[in-house]
């Protein structure tokens, strides 16, 4: 950019910070930065407080790894939910999608999937916590609700292998979902149907 050197350093820093966010290109980052510059100071303060609050007050539930303000999270603490079923999802946003479909069991959030080509192995996601959690013998069924992508399937197969000896039934969402789908973008009806048609992993 021709005016790159004349952009004041604080604005440049803000643009770079926005640019690092997922899905924000250089143009959008620039627009956002100049929006903040023009906005009243309270708006900037509210944004920065919200950002810091998220980091200070939100943590992972020690049981299911969901993001939460209280530990255990509201799902894990809710006695009315079915504690014998654990639905395993890739990310917290997927949990919300499953919840909308009417599921009322418990969850486990992996915070990622295996990606052998990029060197993401089982130790890089929250698999270990799931295995440890199953040892109390309460859960009877683990529903693998990872995305039907190659990475999601690989993750499901690995978890199946790891918990196989524990004698817990492992099921997988039915393939009502198109291969390569993102749960986050899947409509509720499709998702509900996929949950009903889950099958046991062998």
């Amino acid at each position: 950019m021709a005016d790159g050197t004349s952009t004041p350093e604080p604005i440049q820093r803000l643009i770079e910070a926005f640019h690092r966010l997922p899905g924000v290109g250089p143009k959008s980052a620039q627009r956002l930065a100049y929006h903040i510059l023009r906005a009243p100071e309270q708006e900037a303060r509210a944004l920065s407080d919200a950002l810091l609050d998220v980091k200070r007050r939100i943590r992972l539930c020690s049981v299911c790894m969901n993001i939460t303000e209280q530990d255990p999270c509201t799902y894990c603490a809710d006695e009315r939910r079915d504690h014998t079923t654990i639905c395993v999802v890739e990310q917290a946003l997927d949990l919300l999608a499953i919840e909308r479909s009417g599921y009322r069991g418990l969850y486990h959030v992996l915070h990622g999937v295996l990606n052998p080509m990029d060197g993401v192995g089982p130790e890089d996601i929250r698999v270990r916590e799931l295995i440890v959690r199953l040892q109390d013998g309460v859960a009877q069924e683990v529903i693998m609700a990872t995305n039907p992508s190659l990475e999601g399937e690989a993750t499901a197969m690995l978890i199946q292998r790891l918990i196989g000896p524990a004698g817990v039934k492992v099921t997988r969402l039915a393939r009502g979902l198109p291969s390569g789908a993102d749960l986050e973008y899947t409509d509720d009806v499709t998702l509900a149907r996929a949950l009903e048609g889950r099958r046991e992993l062998v």
Binding site: G121, E123, R128, I131, Q135, L162, P165, G167
Partner: peptide, 12 residues
């Protein structure tokens, strides 16, 4: 080792 049997883990 647990009651669940040979649930094992490979460290990074």
């Amino acid at each position: 080792r647990t009651a669940a049997g040979d649930v094992q883990w490979s460290p990074p």
